[in-house]
Write a protein that binds this DNA or RNA. Structure first.
Lengths: 192, 192
DNA sequence: TCATTCATGTAAGCCGTTACATGATTGT
DNA sequence: ACAATCATGTAACGGCTTACATGAATGA
C-alpha cells in the first residue's frame, strides 16, 4: 500500500490517447467550431492528409471515443433529405490534452520505411525490368504528389492555414522533391 | 462447383506473406548461407535497418513461419557454453516467393507519416519553446542519421552491398539531407 | 557482484484497416 | 436506371510491438 506521504504524480493524465485521437482532437481545436466526422474527413484530405490519414470509418470511432473521454462534446443535428449529423467540438479538457501531447517530448525517430525501397534493396534478386517499372511508378507518384503540394502552397484550400501548417507543407515538398530527384537519378543509372 | 475446363489460376501462390516475412526471406536469399535469427538481426542493423526494422522477438516468429510455409529450412546447431542456434536457409520455393513479390506491382504510395510533423502542424496550439525544442531534437537525430548513412556508404559493413543496396542507401541519404536542411530553415524561421 | 552477451521464445495487447451494412436523395 | 453523395456505424481480423521468461558464460 502506498504511503500517505507518497509523492503525487505530477500530471494526473486520465489515460493517454492514441495518435489518431490526438490528430482528430487537434483538428477539432484548430477549427474551433463544431464539425461532423464526415466533414472532418474532407478537411483532412485537403490539409494534414499528407502526413496523417485515417481510414474512412476510423474517424467515427475516434470521435465517439473522444466524447466518452470528455475531450469532445457531441450534438445531434437532424436534417431533411439527408441522414442526421453528429457535430463534435473540443472541450476545455480536450484542448488541454492536445496541449500536453504537443509539448511532451517524444522518443520516436520515424524511419524511412517504404515498401518500394525495401524491394529495391533486394533488386538483384528480381527481373531488372520489373524493378525499373515499379521505380518509374514510384517516381511518377512523387511527381504528382509534388504538384499537389505545390498547388496547396499557392492557394491554401481552407481556413486551416497558418505559420506552422505552412512549415509542415514545406517539409512535404522538400522531401517529395528529394525523392523525385533521387528516383530520376536511380532510373538513369539502372537504364545505363 | 468449378467446371472441369475452368481456367487455372495463373499463380498458385500458397498464401501471401507479410512484409516482415518477405523482408526476412529476402535477406536469407541475399546472404545465401544459413544464418540464425540472432545474427540476422545484426545484419539488419547494419544494412536494411534504415528502411525496415522489426522488433527483436518478431524475427524469430517470422523465421518459424517461413519454415512451416516451406520457404526456409531450419537446422539446429548445438553449441557449448552458449545456447543452441537455429540456422535458417531459404528453399527454392522461398527464392521463388521473393521473386514473385519483388516483381509484383504494389499500389501503395507510402505517405510522409511522422509524429513530429503532425505535432508541428498543430504548433500554434502549443508553447513555442516546446515546439522548438522538439524540432531541434528532430534536427539532431537527422544529423546523426545522415552521418551514419554516409559512413555506411564509405565502408559497407558487410557482404550485403551491391548496386541496388547502394541506390537504396543513397535514397536514405538524400531524404535525410532534405529533412535536415528543412529543419534548419524551419528553426531559423521560428526563432526569428 | 552485477551487467552484458548469447539465443530463443510465448502471450497479450494495441492501433488500425477492411469488409459489411443501411438508406434516402440527387445527378446522369 | 444506376451511380454517386450524404452520413454513420459494427465486427473481425491483421500485423506488429511490448512485456515477460529462461539460463549459462563472460567481462568489469
Amino acid at each position: 500500500m502506498a504511503s500517505e506521504h507518497a509523492t503525487q504524480p505530477i500530471a494526473p493524465e486520465t489515460s493517454r490517447s492514441t495518435l489518431s485521437e490526438y490528430a482528430v482532437l487537434g483538428l477539432l481545436c484548430h477549427l474551433g467550431e463544431p464539425i461532423s466526422g464526415y466533414d472532418l474527413r474532407k478537411v483532412i484530405d485537403s490539409s494534414v492528409g499528407y502526413i496523417w490519414q485515417p481510414s474512412k470509418t476510423h474517424v467515427y470511432v475516434v470521435l465517439r471515443h473522444l466524447e466518452h473521454a470528455g475531450l469532445a462534446t457531441r450534438r445531434e443535428v437532424e436534417q431533411r433529405g439527408k441522414p442526421d449529423k453528429q457535430l463534435y467540438e473540443a472541450t476545455a479538457a480536450g484542448r488541454a490534452a492536445v496541449r500536453t501531447w504537443l509539448e511532451r517530448d517524444e522518443d520516436v525517430s520515424d524511419p524511412d520505411r517504404s515498401i518500394l525501397l525495401l524491394k529495391l534493396f533486394f533488386g538483384a534478386q528480381a527481373d531488372r525490368n520489373a524493378i525499373v517499372r515499379q521505380l518509374t511508378a514510384f517516381r511518377d507518384s512523387f511527381a504528382r504528389r509534388l504538384e499537389t503540394y505545390e498547388s496547396m502552397q499557392v492557394s491554401p484550400r481552407d481556413r486551416v492555414s497558418d505559420e506552422f501548417t505552412r512549415l509542415t507543407l514545406r517539409y512535404g515538398i522538400e522531401r517529395a522533391r528529394a525523392s523525385l530527384d533521387w528516383a530520376d537519378a536511380a532510373l538513369e543509372e539502372l537504364n545505363r
